[in-house]
Design a protein around this nucleic acid. Structure first.
Lengths: 143, 143
DNA sequence: CATACATCCTCTAGTCACTAGAGGAGCAAG
DNA sequence: CTTGCTCCTCTAGTGACTAGAGGATGTATG
């Protein structure tokens, strides 16, 4: 169990930038860590995992508030089953919606690339594919 | 060929909100349209196409600057498609990464729900599912 | 031990891509 | 002709950072 990791190291290891870590502390997403004699933040491996999780969740498009509820699942292990169930169920719905959207987007991008294989713009239907697409299945709102 | 479409209609048809259309004009993503006697913006079907394109591109995760280059490529036809292709290819990679992570999260949430259904307080591994994923540093920064 | 230099601290302000609201003008229907 | 909708411009606010100023601390080398 690593302890007393300075903010720069934890930033490099987690992929979250130093000012962003301080920002997360400010908005209460990351608990304020203990400080050294000289007032520097000292993190542990738990913080590192939490930060990695936050980064992935952000990259997946979850808003901070959604991440907060996800972390609440982890932070309050003794909470009632019903409560955890409700949170997990809501997040699962969101995850499934995003999966649907992303799958549609993937198909779209693959089609774009397939039709754009090394031609001139005149032969490239990238723009048409995206513009002409009046009633697409990508309309799934995801927020 | 529809012409003289008011902003609200074009907003509904393209799926881009009215203030966002004005914002796109302000940042030069959409050319300023002609105005009516009473100073209202009058759009044509070309603008509608352009707006639909922008919306789809935004949904695909393209940043405004990437969309600007895509539109610039379209406005100067006969040039190489390589730049647009590269942008689309990068987005496809990102979408595939997100799909993998989201699937992992979905499996974990489903596992928790299944345990809850059996009256057990699930020990939450949500963080581990997304945190212990250290070898994906590849897509940490790609803009 | 001194000094250079990286890393850290707090604080304020800026960025991106919108979004909301104030305050007012235009237009179509009853 | 008035009600009510859409539109106009403008300013300010939002979320989630990101950059920079100005200063303290920690560490590696002469």
């Amino acid at each position: 169990m690593l302890e007393d990791i300075p903010i720069g190291t934890v930033a490099k290891a987690s992929g979250v930038k130093v000012p962003t870590i301080r920002y997360y502390e400010q908005i209460g997403l990351l608990p304020p860590p203990p400080r050294s004699e000289g007032n520097r933040r000292l993190y542990g491996s738990g913080d590192l995992r939490r930060l990695s999780f936050i980064r992935h969740a952000r990259e997946l498009g979850f808003e901070i508030e959604a991440i907060r509820t996800l972390l609440a699942l982890q932070d309050r292990p003794g909470q009632s089953c019903a409560e955890a169930d409700a949170i997990a169920r809501a997040r699962l719905l969101e995850v499934e919606n995003r999966l649907n959207s992303l799958n549609a987007l993937k198909v779209e991008l693959e089609r774009m690339l397939a039709e754009c294989a090394h031609g001139r713009i005149a032969d490239c239907r990238v723009i048409e594919v995206l513009a002409d697409h009046g009633e697409c299945r990508v309309h799934a709102r995801n927020d």
